[in-house]
Design a protein around this nucleic acid. Structure first.
Lengths: 346, 346
DNA sequence: ACTTGGCACTCACGTGGGATGAGTGCCAGC
DNA sequence: GCTGGCACTCATCCCACGTGAGTGCCAAGT
């Protein structure tokens, strides 16, 4: 028995099922693919594939559909990522061109991914756990209010408006803030966010007694900013594609939407994929069906990859029914990731 | 014939249909409500109501369901907004308590509304068309980069990092920026955002020749910030509730989700509701079914109200199937609006 | 002028039986 | 190890039928 042919059969089953959404039988298989053997032979192969758990039949007298395990094998060994057409490449380029803000880039990216794959797209904001402080700005803005702005080297900006309760009078406040600004920057600039947050306590302690109260307030607020910056964020789009993509998923569509709205769940999912062995799929990670631990996310597959240049900043990807078109989806995710990385690098 | 009774019948039909999701017949109606007449009488009333377009029957031998027009009459004349229970009030309070950021308030509010009404919730960010500039901060952050921060009196902060391409050398850049900062603030502080944007051209023209190139760059960037601040933003949550709320809507669920994802569409919708006569419903605006012009949003109703204290800053509301529980939904929207307004006022 | 009980009528829905056909598993022969 | 043949299984479709909820209308009652 030829092991190769059985794999070819599995591939054919996956491809046909993905395109028709109907169980595929032995006869249809030999008609649509050049397998060079008779339906009976295919049936034998299918029986073996079913024994090994790669395919299954919904009911006795129906064709076969791939199992999660079948998709897994397909993705790992059989899928050759389709290259993007020039038209698609142009589309990506024009869609992402002209984005100014970081927010804008993320927003456009997630929409683009959703549109390109006709599935739900997820983009994690550039992760700042490895980012460092570029600059801290501290300035009075009339009365006892002060503005604190934190800029990281990944381009994210976080700000707080704070009331200096302990200020004695407005005159000296300005002077104190200016001095504090210099000292704060000297302390935290260039440091990783986490380290910077820890360095704040030292800063307060080494502040002249006159300004120590103000310094404490500023440090507290800056600590808030650093913590907020460390917090991961995600954006999603294209949820409407999920309902279109077929009624089978719509059984659990509610729980899928629920999971997508819970950003905490999404982040954990993306995190798990990040820790996965990238293997040889060009950095792409794929979670298939029940491999997703989260309840309600069986029945869906997730394809993600890192983006952001040499140092991976964060991840982006796509979520859809397990019977998605993996080659195309993977190609789109990879292509978008590259373009976004290029934009962020500039 | 008693006009009152016919209205009572309509109310009963709406209430029963909303709670059972099934067409309601004359017999069931007299059993479940104290109408004091026989089914035959009710049938006559129903025939009239149907003639007038308030109810309809899905097929010949079925009960009646309200039409959009029926719901409209119900909302306008028959619905008495249910007061919130103390438990619900407590829930609202604890849910919104402890929000620090404006983003945080909006985020919590939209989730709360979705959870409370079990429908999709929409919250528009505090509108800045009437807001004015509180302060503009401009400062160099190493090399030729400068940070521009715009603070409005409604608490929103917008920032840009800009590269000063026309700077001759780094030394004089700092001085120029400081001077520019003072001049910019003198020009725009206190002005409405729109007016401030227009004042920028004057600012550039009146700048000393030496700094005019830099001033132009800064003005362009500040103009961007002002435009971005003027742009309305919305946040949604609870889309998963829509799929649960019944299969009838799931026919067009795709287009509903699509519309919700297109923030532009949502904003226009909210805008339309804002311009509506608030009538006597305590500031609540209700759009029912096909009254929503947008395709795909027939079949859904929208309940919104303004929030933000005496000067209405923006709107929040709820979107669900036309056969929603209007009294409860309206009560929830109103209650949340009040709490949020209180928080924002503090 | 309304209200009411009675009555015929409609029609969605559920049930059950039979035909259809796609698809399988197995086996004997090549 | 491949192939054609063959019996078998079931989901699906179709149709016919009974059932019952609900209506519209009418004649009689108040």
């Amino acid at each position: 028995m030829s092991d190769d042919r059985r794999l070819a059969v599995l591939r054919a089953i996956v491809e046909d099922y993905v395109s028709t959404h109907e169980p595929v039988g032995s006869k249809a298989l030999v008609e649509r693919h050049q397998l060079g053997v008779s339906p009976a032979t295919i049936r034998n192969d299918m029986a073996v594939l079913e024994d090994e758990g790669y395919i299954t039949q919904p009911h006795t007298s129906a064709g076969r559909i791939p199992t999660d395990r079948g998709y897994r094998l397909f993705v790992d060994r059989l899928a050759n990522v389709k290259p993007m057409t020039p038209a698609e490449k142009r589309a990506i380029e024009t869609f992402l061109h002209g984005a100014d803000d970081l927010d804008d880039v993320v927003d456009r990216t997630v929409r683009l991914l959703a549109q390109l794959t006709r599935q739900a797209a997820v983009v994690q904001y550039p992760s700042l756990s490895r980012a460092s402080v570029r600059h801290v700005e501290l300035v009075g803005v009339g009365g006892r209010s002060a503005l604190l702005v934190l800029i990281t080297d990944s381009g994210r900006v976080e700000q707080r408006v704070l009331d200096i309760r302990s200020a004695v009078d407005v005159e000296t406040l300005g002077v104190s803030l200016a001095a504090l600004r210099t000292r704060v920057n000297a302390t935290v600039a260039g440091k990783r966010l986490r380290e910077a947050r820890e360095a704040l306590t030292d800063l307060v302690q080494q502040t002249p007694a006159a300004d120590i109260a103000i310094a404490a307030e500023v440090a507290a607020s800056l600590g808030d900013c650093l913590t907020a910056s460390l917090e991961e964020r995600v954006v999603i789009a294209g949820t409407s594609n999920l309902v279109k993509s077929g009624a089978d998923l719509s059984l659990s569509l509610g729980s899928v939407l629920e999971a997508l709205e819970e950003h905490v769940v999404l982040l954990r999912l993306v995190q798990e994929l990040a820790e996965e062995q990238p293997s040889e799929r060009g950095g792409l990670s794929v979670r298939i069906g029940a491999e997703n631990l989260h309840l309600g996310l069986d029945g869906t597959s997730v394809v993600t990859t890192g983006y952001g240049g040499e140092t991976v900043l964060a991840r982006l990807g796509v979520l859809g029914p397990t019977r998605m078109d993996y080659p195309t989806t993977m190609a789109a995710v990879r292509a978008v990731s590259r373009y976004v990385s290029r934009i962020l690098a500039s």
